[in-house]
């Protein structure tokens, strides 16, 4: 089962993840080079001011946005006298808010992300890190500020290698009991974040995701959801008697809930049905909140998801 990710981007097969920030950035840069221009939603390729981006709302900026009737509290300097002279009302001239946009990145810190079903596959976390790093590169290229949201620390931003290092050194789940029950999704959203890319396996209940999408919509944040799954999770290829342990539940392996299947092949159909139901619930939630859901299996080439991302943004534009 050759993995596109590992064959193309991991330094060697048999390696479960990236060893250093440089390796991660190198792989991500190669991946980002495959993406066409305008991958990120809302980009304006002909923008004369690199780094500025119209926010499609009133605010500080150079370009005209709209006239608005004067309200008490408005500054007199903002009154457009020429427009006001044409009618009885006094109008305020508003400009379109242009400025650097924050592209937020989030990687699921859950223990389940460390899963890989075969020695020649990367961990799911590695794929997540690669995509998020590639997005960070693209965002910086188009003048946005990539911001890495972290579960236990303030958001990281700045140079790309710092970001990549922070991405690699996200707290490893399971090493402290206090972090065991960590949410797979960010709990707080930075105000003004216009785009949030969430990389996760989304194997938690779909209701949690739907609630999260609702919060984001209220904050005005677009969501790009990257669902990364291991082929074993998609196809359930197990045979015989296997004891399954909940890897996400708790750090204490002895107390983790277990379930024993006498014949896995008999339970495969039930599993696949449940997975399909879960996936469609996720899609429904995304559709309801105008979020975009992209899927990636760790045994497929990562370029696929990049092209999917291109189509997504072009279609959106």
């Amino acid at each position: 089962m050759p993995s596109g990710l590992s064959s193309l981007l991991l330094p060697s097969k048999r390696q479960s993840g990236y060893r250093s920030a440089a390796a991660l950035l190198d792989a991500a840069a190669r991946l980002a080079a495959r993406a066409g221009p305008g991958v990120l939603p809302g980009i304006r390729p002909d923008s004369p001011y690199p780094g500025t981006r119209p926010r499609k709302r009133a605010g500080p900026g150079a370009d005209f946005w709209q006239f608005r009737p004067y309200q008490s509290g408005d500054r007199p300097q903002d009154i457009d006298w020429r427009r006001s002279a044409r009618s009885d009302q006094v109008f305020i001239r508003q400009r379109e808010w242009t400025g650097t946009r924050h592209v937020c990145l989030w990687c699921d810190p859950g223990a389940g992300m460390a899963f890989r079903s075969a020695g020649n596959l990367p961990e799911k976390r590695a794929a997540a890190q690669l995509f998020l790093a590639a997005l960070a590169i693209l965002a910086q290229k188009s003048g946005d500020i990539p911001v890495l949201l972290r579960p236990d620390a303030p958001p990281a931003k700045g140079r790309l290698d710092d970001l990549a290092a922070a991405l690699l050194h996200l707290p490893i789940p399971g090493d402290a009991p206090a972090r065991a029950m960590r949410s797979p999704l960010p709990e707080t959203l930075p105000p003004g974040a216009s785009l949030l890319a969430v990389a996760s396996d989304f194997l938690f209940p779909p209701e949690t995701f739907r609630d999260f999408l609702g919060r984001c919509a209220r904050n005005g944040t677009h969501i790009l959801a990257l669902q990364i799954l291991d082929p074993a999770e998609i196809r359930f290829p197990f045979r015989g008697r296997v004891v399954f342990e909940d890897s996400a539940a708790t750090a204490d392996a002895a107390a983790a809930p277990r379930i024993e299947l006498a014949r896995c092949e008999d339970s495969r159909a039930a599993y696949l049905a449940r997975l399909a139901a879960h996936q469609s619930a996720l899609e429904d939630a995304c559709a309801a909140h105008d979020a975009r859901l992209l899927r990636h299996a760790t045994d497929t080439p990562p370029e696929d998801i990049m092209s999917a991302l291109c189509h997504f943004t072009q279609g959106k534009a």
Binding site: G110, A111, G112, M113, F115, K124, D201, L203, F204, P205, D230, E233, F238, G240, R241, V242, V243, F244, E245, D246, S247, A248, A249, A253, A256, P257, R258, I259, E260, L261, S267, Y271, R274, L275, H278
Partner: peptide, 12 residues
């Protein structure tokens, strides 16, 4: 039996 820590345990 083999023991597998499985992220999609919820479905099982």
């Amino acid at each position: 039996p083999r023991l597998i820590r499985f992220p999609a345990w919820r479905f099982l």
